[in-house]
Structures are given as C-alpha cells and as structure tokens.
Amino acid sequence: MSGGEAYVFAAYLALFVAVLGWLVIHAFKIARLSRELAELVELARRRDGKAPAPDAAEARVAGQ
C-alpha cells in the first residue's frame, strides 16, 4: 500500500469507526433501557399485588 493509499484507507476507516462506535453506544443504551423497563414492570406488578413474574417481563422486553 502506497503512502497516498494509506491515507485514503485511514479516511474511510474513520467513517466506519464512527458509525461502529455510535452503534456500540446505542446498543449499550438499548440494553440499559431494557433492564430499566423490566425493573419498572416488576415494580408495577408488585404494586398491583400480583406475584412478580420476571420471566414474563423479560420475555416481553426481549420480544420488542
């Protein structure tokens, strides 16, 4: 790879890394929101006096 080609590769790589970085951050955010939502579903069920059903709540969150 020549010097010029290496710089072209670096510029295209920067775009790829930025999109990938955004995707990783977004995946972490979705995972956090899923966790929080499952906690809130459990909290709401406990308030209603129903038996907690973490499996059902998790399945609902996972199925979104």
């Binding site: 010097g3 010029g4 710089y7 072209v8 670096a10 510029a11 920067a14 775009l15 930025a18 955004w22």
Partner: peptide, 17 residues
C-alpha cells in the same frame, strides 16, 4: 456534531497527504 468531528478528522488526513 458527530459528523463535524468526522469532517475535522477526514479533512486533517487529506490535508496531511
């Protein structure tokens, strides 16, 4: 702002070469 960072990065690479 994310695209702005990329402008500065790719622009600097192009400037260098």
């Amino acid at each position: 702002t994310i695209f702005g960072v990329l402008v500065l990065v790719t622009g600097s690479i192009w400037a260098k070469v």
